[in-house]
Every structure is written in C-alpha cells, then in structure tokens.
Amino acid sequence: MAYRWESDLTDDDVTPLSSFINRRQIMAGMAGMGLGAIAGPVGAAAGLDPNTWEEITSYNNFYEFGTSKQDPAKYAHQMTTSPWKVTIDGMVDRPGEYSFSDIMSKMKIEKRIYRFRCVETWSMVVPWNGFELADLLNMVGVKSGAKYVSFETLLRPSEMPGTRYNVLAWPYVEGLRLDEAMNPLTIMATGIYNKPIPNQNGAPLRLVVPWKYGYKSIKSIVKITLTDIQPPTSWGRYSTNEYGFYSNVNPEVNHPRWSQASEKRIGGGLLARKMPTLMFNGYEKEVAAMYKGMDLGKYH
C-alpha cells in the first residue's frame, strides 16, 4: 500500500466548531483562555493550534475577486460552484471532463492539519479536508513520459470582479513537477473544519502543497493537464526572478520584496511576535529528498 502521510496533530488539536462560532460573542480575553483550555497541551506544545474559521475565511488572497484581503470574503459568494467540472487532459489514459460529485464519490476524504505560509510572510494553520492528488491522478492514469502537472483556475468575469483588471494575466495557472504532485502531502482540499470549503478559500476544490508558498496552492480548479514540459505559472509570468517555479518555503532564500526568514502567524493580534520560518515550512523530512542535489537558491 502506498505510504500515507500521518498528521502529528489529532482531532483534539482542532478548535471545536462551537468554540470558534461563539468566539465573536465572547470577550477577546475570555475567548483566548477558553481556546487555550480546549486546544490542550499537545497543540500548544507543537505551536500548531489551527486558526479559527473566521481567520481562515476572512483573510484571503484570491485576486479574481479583488486585491484586498477582504475582497474574496466579500465577493466570492457570486461564484457558481455547482455544477462544477474539471477537465483532465494531456498525457493521461482517460482524459475527459469529470464532474466534482463524480470525483468526490471516488475519493477518500481525509483530514490534514497543515501549516500554510504566504510569500507575504504571514502564515496560518488550516485543518483541511480533502484527498491526495495522487489518488486523482491514478484514477485517470498518468502516461509514462509525463513530467509535470499544470492547473488552471476558473475564469468567469461575470462572477469574478477582480478579473476585469489585468492585475495578472488570467486565467490563473500553476504547476508542479510530477513527483511533487504525487507526494503524499499534496492534496486537493474540498473542506475546512469538516465543512465544504468556502468560495473565498477556493471552492469546490483547490490544491494544497504545504511546503510551498501559498500562491502555488491554486484555487477553484477547472483544468488539470499532464505534460512533459515545465508549465508556466501566473506569478512567474508576472516576475520570474521574484516567483520561481518551485517556490519552496525557504528561510534562507529571500524574496526581493520580503525577507523570508520569519513569519507572522495570523491571530496574534496587534502585538503578535514574529516566529522563525521553517525549511520547507516544517515538512523537510517528507519532501527534502525530492530536491536532493538541487541549488535551491537558483531553483527558488
């Protein structure tokens, strides 16, 4: 059987639904104490208390809905996510249009609590629900010779006010090397906190590659193509020297706009202290072998 990634966090580490729903009604200090008590010592010791539902769903980068962090939560409800089809083509045995419900009926949904690190130097911990991308790729059958996977986000200007401006060249595209796509850590997320993933977080299905900067984890996917050439990425097209194809979280390789040595975990409020960023966002053990011998400064 294929290796399955095991979370070092358990259900006990997840903030219960009732706690984060009530959070707004409780005084901030009380909520902090309550959360601490509920989250328990394991999560606290690992420093991996998941962010609240409110934090995860109200602070997003999804430029198709606008460039401010609040725009996705404000406008993403306009996006129709049902019915939803994903075209899977290129070097696969069974190319075609797969409906979201069809995919869901064949996939094993798991819970994955991952660190999420944005290139803008903020971070979160998100309790995703989803399936391994490898399972989906095996379902369609990857042809030998395929080396890369490219992904494309929905482009529907009537429902996506941000696409009226060419902030980036639409549609948003991303790519992974095949071994990265097949890594057990790589998932297609379909939920957060056991609820369907909200539109602003990339409904109905999005990629999550926890050891790479957030923009690699492309949202609201409509197309997946297997190919033998390295596919373009939206941010790479905008500025190659700022946004490399790999974009692995690496505290030693600075981005021209931001030092990547440390990060700010969302939820700490106005007086939040920065924390050091971990190599491969803390997933070095699981992924470092894929990049053995590569100059990670050159292939950033």
């Binding site: 901030a28 409110e54 934090e55 109200s58 602070y59 962090k69 609040q70 903020w122 700010k264 969302i266 939820g267 409020g269 106005l270 939040a272």
Partner: peptide
C-alpha cells in the same frame, strides 16, 4: 485605529491593516 486594532475592528491581521 489603534483601539480598533487592539479590539478586532481591523480584521484578523491588524498590524498590516494599521
């Protein structure tokens, strides 16, 4: 703005907002 930042009125990332 400082008061809002301390009490949640500037969203979940008040440092950047302020």
């Amino acid at each position: 703005l400082l008061y809002m930042g301390l009490t949640g009125g500037l969203g979940v990332e008040p440092i950047e907002a302020l």
